[in-house]
Design a protein around this nucleic acid. Structure first.
Lengths: 295, 295
DNA sequence: CTCTGTGAAGATCTTCACAGCT
DNA sequence: AGCTGTGAAGATCTTCACAGAG
């Protein structure tokens, strides 16, 4: 504030676009790799390639943070790592609690990527008494009854939910009531939270479904001409209405004849116990996904 | 519908917006739940609430699929489930292979959500000989050398990578060469693939970093006045330039090192989906860890 | 009168392309 | 000369708000 170039729009710091925020971790990862190789500087072109985006977007993103580059040269790697880390709030310690230590929860707990970025697993919590006390990733699992105390004692503000769908909302409510204001949800359910609480969701099933959609299109295209024409099929289907979906089905997926056979009972939940997909609760723009790491 | 308003842009079928495609799985999940409760119809308002979006968006999304609702009434649940399933290509069987059966891979394999949506785990593959033959989620792990044969024998077109970051690109190349055209990547690396191949990435660490960003803002706001003032800090930092980032840096990547160390065996991690809105298939940035689903 | 389907307005995000430091 | 920083154009996505089917 004080010094700053006065001709600037007066500290734009506030409005960093969501889309940009979602990419900062990507840049940070690429920069970290460069840093480890002791690379001193990078051009927007190189860094963009390493992060998997185009250079114009990267420069625009950085422009929201400030002018950290040097024209004619590029960006100082170490310096940028620092700036982005700070912008993301990674220069501080973030204690987190994970609720639901099943297969997934355990895998997540074992994931080393947490600590690497300022996150610290303060506690693992589960509702199964037989799990209590057992060490997972070196941390003893605690009983869910102590959830509130644990959160308060550790000053936790970020919670990870990896419980079955049915327990998610309840766990979420308790976390929020205890003071958690950011939640990463792995359960395939839409969580409702009061204003001020952020929820991000991760769902494997949804990602696969999106891939399937595109995969289906590819198949249709290469199959022959353009797709048979969804429009026509659709029209017919509509006409038949709920009447005989089967027929339509066959037609619709021409290429995928095999699938047609199933037409009949599709979707209708055959009674699958678990929910499948998951939703994504996001606010605005986003479109990225996170990745996991090796244990 | 056949009747249709001729003034329509002539079969828009082709262009279902990515943002819409990303939400279809959400609607499908909500609809499946309603179906299981034998609810016959839903209004856009109710369904939107169940899916966590607003009704205008939902109606707009459905309008890209066709006119499946009834004015004054709502949508027929069973019929919509069917239409969306077909649109997503879930009425057919999608055999998938998962490479990297570490903590994360195993957790993913055990995740029941797959089968429920037309996905079938055709094979689990790992590079660790000691893992071969061991059953994970009831499926014996196969050796990586057989990757090409497995893909061909099963007609696999979708692959899931849950290996350590270092092995991801190599595995990706082999999958693509063998015929896989859609990849769900849980490794924190940017994968480069030829045109025509879709990649979606899931990274837990990235999601947490995004939450941390918002969490930091909240703290700053409620703390008192406006944030201390990023501008000033920035200026100071700039002055110090590359001078003292070290301290910061150490903190930033500390974790990474740990993760790297483990690299050896299989991948781990878990993670899932994500972003929703915008971006569709991106190439990839990096990330950290993915998350998985409920077990 | 109720609730869908949708043109149109508005908000975001992305890409272009070039002025201007170094 | 090289490369960043950015106004402006373009592409998407979201929200509004209402005509009109049922």
């Amino acid at each position: 504030m004080a010094t700053g170039r006065t001709h600037r729009p007066a500290t734009r710091s506030r409005g960093i676009p969501e889309a940009t925020v979602a990419r900062l971790p990507l840049y940070l990862r690429a920069l970290t790799a460069l840093s480890e190789r002791s690379v001193p500087t990078v051009s927007s072109e190189e860094l963009a390639a390493a992060a998997g985006v185009n250079s114009a977007k990267l420069r625009k993103d950085f422009s929201y943070l400030g002018s950290y580059g040097t024209r004619g040269v590029g960006y100082d790697v170490e310096y940028l790592v620092y700036q982005i880390s700070r912008e993301l709030g990674l220069t501080q310690d973030w204690p987190i609690v994970m609720v639901g230590i099943g297969n997934l929860g355990a895998a997540l707990a074992n994931y080393g990527g947490f600590a690497s970025r300022g996150f610290r697993v303060a506690a693992l919590i589960d509702a199964d008494p037989s799990m209590v006390g057992k060490p997972v990733a070196g941390i003893p699992v605690q009983f869910i009854d102590d959830l509130e105390r644990i959160i308060e004692d550790n000053g936790v503000s970020i919670g990870v939910i990896a419980t079955p769908a049915g327990a998610a909302q309840q766990v979420c409510d308790r976390l929020v009531a205890a003071g958690v204001t950011s939640i990463l949800n792995f359960a395939p359910t839409v969580l409702s939270v009061p204003d001020g609480v952020d929820v991000r969701k991760v769902d494997l099933s949804i990602e696969l479904q999106i891939l399937a959609f595109h995969e289906q299109r590819k198949a249709g295209d290469e199959a022959g001409a353009v797709l048979p024409d969804a429009a026509a099929v659709r029209a017919a289907a509509a006409a038949a209405s709920a009447a005989a979906p089967t027929a339509v089905d066959a037609g619709a997926d021409a290429g995928t004849a095999a699938a047609a056979g199933t037409g009949a009972g599709t979707g209708t939940g055959a009674g699958t116990g678990t929910g499948a997909g998951t939703g994504a609760g996001r606010k605005g723009p986003d479109g990225d996904v996170p990745a996991v790491m090796p244990a």
